[in-house]
């Protein structure tokens, strides 16, 4: 039986293609289930973007603490990264959602984003710290010897160079963050993962909804990595001989 006839007789036939079409219809078309996945994409993107932005800010602050001259700030930076790295992100998400923000009237997705940013901030801080330490001490000395103060030297000389070194690791962290958000179902948010899971429960079909979930994540991240690749090329401009 060729594909064309399979298509024509999809309703009654038992061939694999017909089976596929029926399952597809049941999983995505019936009751507009594809809309769940689309909305899930929106939720995942919203949470990821806000968490990445806040995570970057938190990471920068924690890195500043870790690199500070003051013992107390350094201690705080170390404790923060230790605690965050030493506990599962699901646990952190649930503590923040059900304990810390239990009585706060904020959109669910914003609370989730805050939880992920606190988590991501610890990793971002380590990336920034390593990036800044990777810049040769002579650069700081040259800046200071010209009369720039410590902060000016940091912002005009060290950080612009560190950004280039940090960039790949930072992209990696962002991608990890996106995938990490797949646990927001635990606090009742309908992201991509939860939507796939919901369809699975509603249809008693596992293969197609879960594969669809995987494909959606994959495509999103593939688009991102391509974009990051372009950006990195621009950043590397001053290395071209």
């Amino acid at each position: 039986m060729n594909l064309y006839t399979a298509w024509l007789t999809a309703g009654e036939s038992t061939g694999w293609f017909a089976e596929f079409t029926r399952t597809f219809e049941k999983c995505f078309i019936r009751e507009d289930r594809y809309k769940l996945l689309l909305e899930g994409v929106g939720v995942t993107i919203k949470i990821s973007l806000l968490a990445a932005l806040l995570g970057l800010i938190i990471g920068f602050l924690i890195a500043s603490c870790s690199l500070s001259k003051h013992k107390l700030l350094r201690f705080f930076g170390k404790v923060y990264t230790d605690v965050i790295r030493g506990t599962p992100s699901v646990t952190q998400l649930m503590i923040i959602y059900f304990v810390i923000f239990a009585t706060v009237d904020l959109d669910k997705w914003i609370i989730a984003a805050i939880a992920f940013s606190i988590n991501s901030g610890a990793y971002v801080a380590e990336i920034i710290r390593a990036g800044i330490l990777s810049i040769d001490k002579g650069q700081t000395e040259a800046g200071r010897s010209l009369g720039l103060n410590g902060i000016q030297t940091m912002f005009y000389i060290v950080i612009p160079q560190a950004v280039k070194n940090i960039f790949p690791a930072m992209c990696n962290e962002f991608i990890t963050l996106i995938k990490e958000t797949a646990i927001v179902g635990y606090v009742g948010l309908m992201d991509i993962q939860k939507a796939g899971d919901f369809i699975k429960s509603a249809t008693y079909l596992a293969f197609m909804p879960l594969i669809a979930t995987a494909i959606i994540y994959f495509v999103m991240i593939k688009i991102l990595t391509t974009l990051f690749g372009f950006l990195e090329k621009i950043l590397r401009k001053s290395d071209i001989r």
């Binding site: 040769d136 002579g138 000395e141 040259a142 800046g143 200071r144 010897s145 009369g147 000389i157």
Partner: peptide, 22 residues
């Protein structure tokens, strides 16, 4: 210190030019 350093130029063994700037 920064004001004092502005009066004194320093040239290093390893140049220490800023590689990200022209």
């Amino acid at each position: 210190v920064n004001k004092v350093r502005q009066k004194m130029g320093m040239v290093f063994q390893h140049f220490n030019l800023f590689p990200h700037l022209t």
